[in-house]
C-alpha cells in the first residue's frame, strides 16, 4: 500500500468508497513464517492452491504448474505445508 494517510485525508467514518480493494491491504506483513516450495518434490497437485485461505498460492494454469507464493498477501498460516501430500513446502521463520 502507498504511504499511510494522515487523519485529514480520510473518508469520514472510515467508510471504504472503492469496491474490490482488498488487494491493496498487504496482509503479508502479519507473517511470522514464510512457506517455501521445493519444486524437486512438488507434484503440481494444486492442493495448496485449493486450500490457501488467502488465495496466495501462485499457479500457471496453462502449464499446469504451481509456481510459488504471493508474499504480499500470504499470512504464513502453514495450511499449504500441512496439506501438501509430498511434503514439498517448508515453513521458514521470518527474520
Amino acid at each position: 500500500m502507498s504511504k499511510p494517510k494522515g487523519w485529514k485525508e480520510l473518508v469520514p467514518g472510515g467508510i471504504i468508497t472503492e469496491a474490490g480493494n482488498a488487494r491493496d491491504y498487504k496482509t503479508g506483513d502479519w507473517r511470522t513464517e514464510r512457506p517455501q516450495v521445493n519444486k524437486e518434490k512438488c507434484i503440481n497437485c494444486f492442493f495448496c492452491w485449493a486450500y490457501c485461505p488467502d488465495g496466495s498460492v501462485k499457479v500457471d494454469a496453462d502449464k499446469g504448474v504451481m509456481v510459488g507464493f504471493d508474499y504480499d498477501h500470504c499470512k504464513g498460516c502453514g495450511i499449504c505445508a500441512s496439506i501438501c501430500p509430498s511434503k514439498a513446502i517448508d515453513m521458514i521463520p521470518e527474520r
Partner: peptide
C-alpha cells in the same frame, strides 16, 4: 458501492478517532 464498519486496526483506527 461502499463498505461501512470495516476492520480498522492500529494502522488507521487512531486517525479515524482524530477525525
Amino acid at each position: 458501492p461502499v463498505t461501512y464498519g470495516p476492520l480498522d486496526l492500529f494502522d488507521y483506527y487512531f486517525e479515524h478517532k482524530r477525525s
